[in-house]
């Protein structure tokens, strides 16, 4: 039995400690906003925040986050995420949408530490988030627009 704090609430799951957090979220807790894209830390679709830092859930054994605070796209809020969602809506960023949870979690982490990122900052922070639809043009514009909304 492993106890975690997910989106602010304590949750217990009966799984082996080596089970990746990704599958615990998706299969055991019904939090399917966190996506499987590669399972090998290659695409960023499974990005969550653990104690405030971005982490790839597909390569994080659930045992390693026991007792830590995990935030998923479903529970993500706060000024940066709200600004990003507003920008995403304004620019209609998503296409198929499958990568977008991960994009938003990465972007929120970026804005939290750097409220006025340059293009180079965006490249550095977002290069691990693949988008096969190549919605990159609007992802970049969306981050800039969110930064503006935040008054950065």
């Amino acid at each position: 039995m492993i106890t975690l704090t997910i989106n602010g609430a304590p949750r217990s799951v009966e799984v082996r400690g080596d089970t990746p957090l990704l599958w615990v979220l998706r299969d055991h807790l019904g939090l399917t906003g966190t996506k499987y894209g590669c399972g090998q830390a290659l695409c960023g679709a499974c990005m969550v925040h653990v104690d405030g830092s971005p982490m790839l859930a597909c390569v994080t054994p659930v045992g390693a986050v026991a007792g830590k605070a995990v935030i998923t796209i479903e529970g993500a809020g706060g000024r940066a995420m709200e600004a990003l969602r507003a920008a995403w809506a304004e620019l209609d960023v998503p296409q198929c949408g499958y990568c977008q949870s991960g994009q938003l979690m990465s972007a929120a982490a970026l804005l939290a530490r750097n409220p006025r990122p340059t293009d180079a900052d965006i490249d550095a922070a977002m290069d691990g988030n693949l988008c096969r639809c190549a919605a990159y043009h609007r992802i970049r514009a969306g981050i800039h627009a969110a930064a503006k909304r935040l008054g950065g």
């Binding site: 998706r26 299969d27 019904g30 939090l31 399917t32 906003g33 966190t34 996506k35 499987y36 998923t72 796209i73 479903e74 990003l84 969602r85 995403w88 809506a89 209609d92 960023v93 998503p94 949408g97 499958y98 977008q100 949870s101 938003l104």
Partner: peptide, 27 residues
């Protein structure tokens, strides 16, 4: 005419087939 699926694709609620879970389902 804005995309009708942007919101669901920004908060994790958009359902892809891989996200479906049915009672008793095996994988």
């Amino acid at each position: 005419f804005k995309r009708t699926d942007t919101r669901a694709k920004s908060d994790g609620s958009a359902q892809f087939a891989l996200d479906m879970h049915l009672p008793g389902m095996l994988t």
